[in-house]
């Protein structure tokens, strides 16, 4: 059985180490916060906060306290607030240890496309381009194939890029792959998924 959303998030949480400052994207990456266990992780929200807490209890929502997905959240005893220029200063400056992001396509050289589909509604890149250019390690969490069953791990991206050669590791429902010289390297297979199955679902070059 391939991993489900929660299993992918749990696997991504294993990438995080004690003491890390981390930025989590929208979607499955947000679930990663549920699986960090006893590790001392500080979450950054790029609208200007370190030490992001969980959603507030009903009736305790504060319109002045939201995350980058514009959801109401809470603060922790370690929380600090700052302006957007300072926030992206720490991102661009390489102070954030890792970003865990969703993606539409990843290429075998680490190119990432996750902000725009030409001809469809154009919403904007938000902070994604700054994050992938600046953080130390970029981990993509996404389904291995799209709704049509086609590989999202490609030789070359077909969509407009968010960043060039920026992805380090990809966690999909079928397993874990690293971007290495010459292509992608299989690090781990999801429970019950065979290497042949993963290879068959992957367009990108897989190197040994």
């Amino acid at each position: 059985m391939p991993w489900d959303r929660n299993q992918m998030a749990a696997r991504a949480a294993e990438e995080l180490e004690d003491g890390m400052y981390v930025n989590l994207g929208i979607g499955i990456p947000t679930l990663v916060a549920n699986y960090t266990g006893d590790k001392d992780i500080t979450l950054q929200s790029e609208n200007g906060m370190l030490g992001m807490g969980p959603f507030p209890f009903e009736g305790e929502e504060d319109p002045d306290l939201i995350n980058a997905g514009k959801q109401t959240i809470t603060e922790l005893d370690r929380t600090s607030y700052f302006d957007s220029a300072t926030s992206f200063g720490m991102i661009r400056g390489g102070k954030i240890a890792a970003a865990i992001l969703g993606a539409m396509e990843v290429a075998e050289n680490g190119d990432l496309a996750n902000w725009m589909i030409p001809g469809k509604l154009i919403k904007g890149m938000g902070g994604a381009m700054d994050l992938v250019a600046g953080v130390k390690r970029v981990i993509v969490v996404m389904d291995h194939t799209n709704k049509a069953g086609e590989s999202k791990l490609l030789r070359e991206c077909t969509l407009p890029l968010t960043g060039k050669a920026v992805v380090n590791r990809i966690i999909t429902n079928l397993g874990v792959l690293d971007v290495v010289e010459g292509g992608l390297k299989i690090v781990e297979l999801a429970d019950g998924v065979t290497e042949d199955e993963l290879r068959a679902a992957t367009e990108a070059t897989i190197v040994n």
Partner: peptide, 23 residues
């Protein structure tokens, strides 16, 4: 890009007409 937008504002306010970024 969000960080570029913020820095473009901050830079102008700090008298810096341009800056280089890898974003």
């Amino acid at each position: 890009p969000q960080g570029t937008l913020a820095e473009r504002m901050r830079a102008a306010g700090a008298g810096i007409p341009g800056f280089y970024t890898k974003t």
